[in-house]
Design a protein around this nucleic acid. Structure first.
Lengths: 131, 131
DNA sequence: CCGATTATTAACACATTGGTTCTAGAACAA
DNA sequence: TTGTTCTAGAACCAATGTGTTAATAATCGG
């Protein structure tokens, strides 16, 4: 229940139902009812999962008549990938290509963020306070 | 509290203290006391964080005299990165280089896993039971 | 305005988490 | 053996997360 962005994203991803919802959304926007269909949980439960995803910035929502469409927002996943890249050398010894990836990821996000800006927001090393 | 591997890993990463512990371990193995030092929580609390990390496969531990050394195991982070790569096209339109990364990551793990094997264990799409 | 449809909120139950303090175990030194 | 050090376990507590059902919005068609 930490409330910093990356913690919210990791927590959101820790639930298989929510991951499955994200997977479904890669095929296109969907209503709550459509997202609920594959699961044997109540529809309010799905509404709450969607709220968690929205709160983590992983989906956005718009109305269409009485329905609400959920839309995948993958940007936080890119940030998580950037965070994980820090550990790449501990699983991969020949990581030249991965370094390229990291540079690519950090160098230009959709919002034009810089490497430094990206680093500042999620580096929870032991040398800093983390909320 | 899902108990599949990737859920355990995401849940473990959702806590800033645990992420900081992992970051510390990139500098080398450490005892519980050393890991606890930067935080103003009790030592048993750190012991429990370590247990969560161990359970997720993110650390291994060995004894050294009366102390226990924690060692970073980054392999699950590689698996998470692989899982996240599926969303790459939603945040990055020119992802040729990322495709290379994915191939590299999946093609040869430390344990010689294949792409297919890696896919089988963490694809929690809406078309399968999970948990 | 009324009713139908879709989704959210409220109220509740229950398990889990993350923290505490206190106690117990394991490995070594004397 | 006895004591010292380091770590884990037990017992407890407050807060949160996930699910339920029932009631409440919100939107549109007639």
């Amino acid at each position: 229940m930490p409330d910093d962005r990356i913690s919210l994203v990791f927590a959101a991803l820790a639930d298989p139902t929510r991951r499955a919802i994200l997977t479904r959304l890669t095929e296109g926007d969907a209503t709550v009812a459509e997202l609920a269909a594959p699961f044997d949980v109540s529809q309010p439960a799905i509404s709450r999962h969607l709220k968690v995803l929205e709160n983590a910035g992983l989906i956005s929502r718009t109305r269409r008549a009485t329905a609400r469409l959920s839309h995948l927002q993958a940007e936080p996943l890119r940030e998580v990938t950037t965070w994980l890249a820090r550990y790449q050398r501990f699983w991969d010894e020949s990581h030249e290509r991965l370094d390229e990836l990291l540079a690519a990821l950090q160098g230009r996000g959709p919002d034009g963020r810089t490497d430094a800006a990206a680093k500042e927001e999620d580096d929870d090393g032991q040398d800093r306070d983390h909320r």
